[in-house]
Simulated scan of single mutants.
Amino acid sequence: MSRINTRYAAGWLGVALVTATLGTFTGLAQAQESKAPAKNWQAGLSRTDLVRRDLDVDGREVIQVRVDFDAGVTSPKHSHPGVEIAYVIDGTFEYQLEGQPPVTLKAGDSLYIPAGIAHVAKNIGQGKGSELATYIVKKDTPLVVLQP
């Protein structure tokens, strides 16, 4: 009888250990994933996720975010696993796309950024600047890939 109880207890202990381990890893993964969109690339820059939807094209999704920059703030050099359309809501920005001369955009202007092209955005205005970024990207891949 004690042998059955020991096996029973050991089995439940194993289930509890696996459940706790998976819960910990899942919680960490979700915490990292949920922090990624809200995480500042540097002080003075923040993102607000607005829309994330699957497209009719297999393996693709559309993501739309608002990105707010304090005056003088520059994003790190980065790329995306698909195209980005940047629309300036407020302020003045300078965009530097790899291999192209800098482009200055003001409120109401937009810019098409091809997939995989490294780029930097800088708020060159006097106050806070905001852009609406729309991405058409591969699903289940990181949205932002930092470049050296």
Rank of each mutant, 00 (worst) to 15 (best):
R3Y: 12
R3P: 01
N5S: 12
Y8W: 13
A9P: 03
A10H: 09
G14N: 12
A16I: 12
L17W: 10
V18S: 09
A20F: 10
L22V: 11
G23Y: 08
F25N: 08
F25T: 10
T26A: 11
A31F: 08
E33W: 07
A38I: 11
A43T: 07
A43N: 08
G44V: 01
L45M: 10
V51Q: 07
R53H: 10
L55H: 07
L55M: 13
V57L: 11
G59W: 01
R60H: 11
R66K: 12
R66A: 10
V67W: 00
A71Q: 02
G72N: 10
T74M: 14
S79D: 11
H80A: 03
V83L: 12
E84T: 07
I85A: 02
I85Y: 11
I85M: 10
A86D: 11
F93C: 01
E94Q: 14
Y95V: 09
L97K: 09
P101Q: 13
K106Q: 15
K106D: 15
K106M: 08
D109P: 03
S110G: 14
L111E: 02
L111S: 02
I113H: 02
A115C: 09
A115Y: 13
G116W: 13
A118C: 09
H119Y: 02
A121S: 15
I124T: 14
Q126S: 15
K128M: 13
S130P: 02
E131T: 14
L132T: 04
L132K: 07
D140T: 06
D140E: 14
P142N: 14
L146D: 06
Q147M: 10
Q147R: 14
P148Y: 02
P148F: 02
